[in-house]
Each structure stands twice: as structure tokens, then as C-alpha cells.
Design a protein around this nucleic acid. Sequence first.
DNA 1: CTGTGTGCAAAGAATTTGCACCAAA
DNA 2: TTTGGTGCAAATTCTTTGCACACAG
Lengths: 151, 151
Amino acid sequence: MAQSIYTAEALKAELNSKGCRMTPQREKILKAFQELPEGEHLSAEDLYHKLQAQNENISLSTIYRTVKMMARMGILRELELAEDHKHYELNQPRPHHHHHLICVKTNKVIEFKNDQVLSISQKVAEKYGFQVLDCELRIVGISPEGQRSIF
Amino acid sequence: MAQSIYTAEALKAELNSKGCRMTPQREKILKAFQELPEGEHLSAEDLYHKLQAQNENISLSTIYRTVKMMARMGILRELELAEDHKHYELNQPRPHHHHHLICVKTNKVIEFKNDQVLSISQKVAEKYGFQVLDCELRIVGISPEGQRSIF
DNA sequence: CTGTGTGCAAAGAATTTGCACCAAA
DNA sequence: TTTGGTGCAAATTCTTTGCACACAG
């Protein structure tokens, strides 16, 4: 099952099985996400700077290529929050998925968890023969602060 | 309640109450979405071409400005499907919200409905004092076809 | 009239791509 | 040695913005 591959060795094996290669860059990117506290997520740019701060010079192009690849492998989950760029985080095994409550006016984002959502997703995916990599309930609305503003 | 404003008159009233104005462009954009079959959605570009085809020349800028505004008013829902641009559709009253099952490999999108998701959303939003405009369960995974492809 | 909305063209931001060189397997 | 990966810079794509003119209230 793809979503529990977290060691560098396992990543290498997974890559090789697809005719792809392990590289220092890929290993460091994986490590960066593993070191991230639960609930945090990075944009490509964030990751780039985080690595720079650790004296790891990996180009932005490689980062974009790698995170997209890892998302397709089910290692990372790709989040679309209110901003206009994607964020990534490790795709946790089933019980840790979390969801988002987003304000259209203030762009405020609240995270929450919910087990029912997970089982619903599982059931729906099964019906269509899909293998679930990720599920996310996005509730879009207006926060208390937003309700006060005219526009 | 914002989400049931569908007539041009109601839109006008809603706009005026906020110091905004009704325009032919806004009316035509609303109409375009109303004519859309249930379950279909348009990108800004799609909408632009659809209007062109009806000999309605509305600029892309106006379209972008208008759909974003209508989404913030709760008239349209903004969808982030697998592609890298947003799609819009009329925001149906509660029981019609639908959700998406998306394949990361083939970009195939399947729509489905689920009442439980709706009540979960309502409950969560209430807890944080949010007014719900829209909710969407996004299940990301690999379709049967995708499972066959190497990458 | 007053100020909001529109169209145009230009600017921006995020992401992707072509290509020469580098390095896993 | 072969083929996939990386870095760089340029190109794309989607979206936003400044400004002059048009028009709704």
C-alpha cells in the first residue's frame, strides 16, 4: 500500500520498481516532510527556503517535479487552501487525515479531523474501484469576523 | 440567506444593498450558469467562450472579477478539480451539493452526492461560528485505469 | 452627477519545460 | 554505459491590476 512508504530505502525500492532513481534531492525532500510537525504543510517555495536554511541547495524546478511525483505516488498529499498555490504534507495513514474550514472573506483556515468523513470516502471510492490516496472535506463559508465586513 | 438568490432582480437587490450595481454583464453571467445542466461547471475561460458563442462580448477580466465576487456572495461555488484552474457552478441549496472523486493519474473526475457530508459540515461550521456557503468532499486517488499505468 | 464597472493591455505569480551536463544503476 | 535527474533560464498558464472611458443609480 503506497501510503505507508516513509523510509528512504522504501522510497528507493518504490522508485526503482517504476524505472526511476533515488537521488540525494529526493531523499532530502522526503526527510524535510518527515521532520515537519503534524498539521503543518509547505508550499514549493516554503520547502525551497527550508532546505536552503539547512544548506541544501535544491532547485525550485526539482522541488516542483518531486512534490508532484510524490503526490502521485501517494506519499504526499496536495492541499488547495484558500491561497492561490498548493501546499504539501506527508500523507498520513488513514486515521490522521484532516479537513478544512475556509473563510472566503478573510482566507482564515481552520483544520479539523473527522472519522466519519474517512469511512464515507472509503465507501465511495470502493464503489468506483478507486484506491484512496487522500480525502479532504472542504467547508467554505464566512467566519465570524468575515460576517462583520461589508465585502 | 444568500444561497437562494437566483433571479436577476434578487441579484440586483443584493448588489445594491452592498453599494454595488447591476450590469448587463453580471446578469448574463448569472444566466449562463443558470442555463448550465446540473453537474456541469465552467472555468473562467469556458464561460468566456460560451458567452462569445452567444455573441455576448464580455471581457475575461470582467468574468474573473464577477465569478470571484459571486463566489464570495455564495451564489457560485468555486471548485478546485484536478486541473490547475478553478471551475464554477451555481451554488445549489443544501440538498444538492455534490462531491468529487478525482484520479491523480488520469485526471478523471466522478461526482457524487452524500447527505451525511452535509450534516457533518453544518455541525463543524456551527462549532466555529461559520456560516456555510459550500462544502465539498474531495477524494483523491487512483482510478482503475490509472492503476494499470506505470506512471 | 458620482462613483462603480468595464475593456484593454500590461503585470504578476505559480508552475512547467528545453536543454546541456551530471550521476544512479 | 545508458538513461533518468538536476539546475538554470526561459516559457506558459492562470489570474490580477492600472487606467481611461462608459454607464447605473
